Amino acid sequence: MTDAPARLAGLARPMQHAMNNLYMVLQANLEAVQATLPPEERNAVRLGRALQGAREMEALIRAYLRLGRPHEEGQVDSGKFLEAVRPVLALAVGKPLKVEVLATATIAPPRPEVDLALLDLTAGARGLPPGQPPLLRLDGSAIEVNWPAPEGALEALAELGLQASSQDGATRIVLG
């Protein structure tokens, strides 16, 4: 009998493929109907909201399913990496997460391990004062957040071979 995590990891890639197919049909049909309506019409506005919701739902589910996929490494643009993991990070933060991209770079993060370690890092954002929104800034291969790393988060990132430090209430991680 196989263990559940291994079985779930084996389903992650086919599940993501199936979800992509379903979203493609949904979005294509919504876009086709929207194209037949005058932009100022109330139903066109409603369809626009539905399309935006479908896109956001697709990004969230794609990011979530990536967490269960088997280990993989490959080069990726840091901006594309951040956009892929952002939906689950924003959900885990529990508050609106502001993201700034100053520059991007080519990185090769071990995935899904880095995604999960960044998810652990988001727990620190819950301690921010009410008037201070969480901020994540990407500058090339470095991610900076405006909250301290929770206990164990820096060690988990270091175990993955990443440079990570936390000082003055902020945390910096170099992805590659």
Rank of each mutant, 00 (worst) to 15 (best):
I61M: 14
V33C: 03
Q34M: 10
L89Y: 05
G79S: 10
G48W: 04
A32V: 08
E100C: 00
P110Q: 12
E41G: 01
R86I: 03
P39G: 08
G94T: 14
H71D: 02
P38F: 05
A59F: 04
P38T: 12
R42K: 07
E40C: 00
Q34F: 04
T36F: 00
E58H: 15
A84V: 09
E56S: 06
E40D: 14
L82P: 03
E40W: 07
T104Q: 10
V85M: 02
E83A: 15
V45C: 00
V76N: 04
V33D: 03
L102M: 12
A84G: 13
E58C: 11
H71N: 02
A50N: 00
R46A: 14
L91I: 03
L30F: 10
L102T: 13
A103K: 03
E83T: 13
E41S: 08
G79I: 07
T36A: 08
T106F: 00
G79N: 08
V114K: 00
L67N: 01
E31D: 13
P70Y: 05
G79W: 06
R86W: 12
V33Q: 08
R111C: 01
E73F: 04
E83Q: 15
L37D: 05
V101T: 14
A54N: 11
L51Y: 09
P112I: 02
E72T: 13
T36Q: 14
P87G: 05
K98S: 10
E113W: 02
Q34H: 14
Q75F: 09
E83M: 12
V85H: 01
A35Q: 11
E100I: 09
E31N: 11
A54S: 15
T106N: 02
P110C: 04
L65M: 09
T104W: 01
P109F: 05
L102C: 08
L91W: 13
L30E: 11
P87A: 06
E58K: 15
P109Q: 07
T104P: 00
E100F: 01
V85N: 01
A92L: 04
H71S: 04
R86F: 10
T36G: 04
A35M: 05
L60S: 13
G48S: 02
M57Q: 05
E72P: 00
Y64K: 11
V33T: 11
N43S: 12
R49C: 03
V93Y: 09
L91F: 13
G53F: 02
R62Q: 13
G79A: 15
L51C: 07
L30Y: 08
E73H: 11
I107F: 07
G74M: 01
P38Q: 11
L97W: 09
K80G: 00
E72V: 13
E72G: 03
A92D: 02
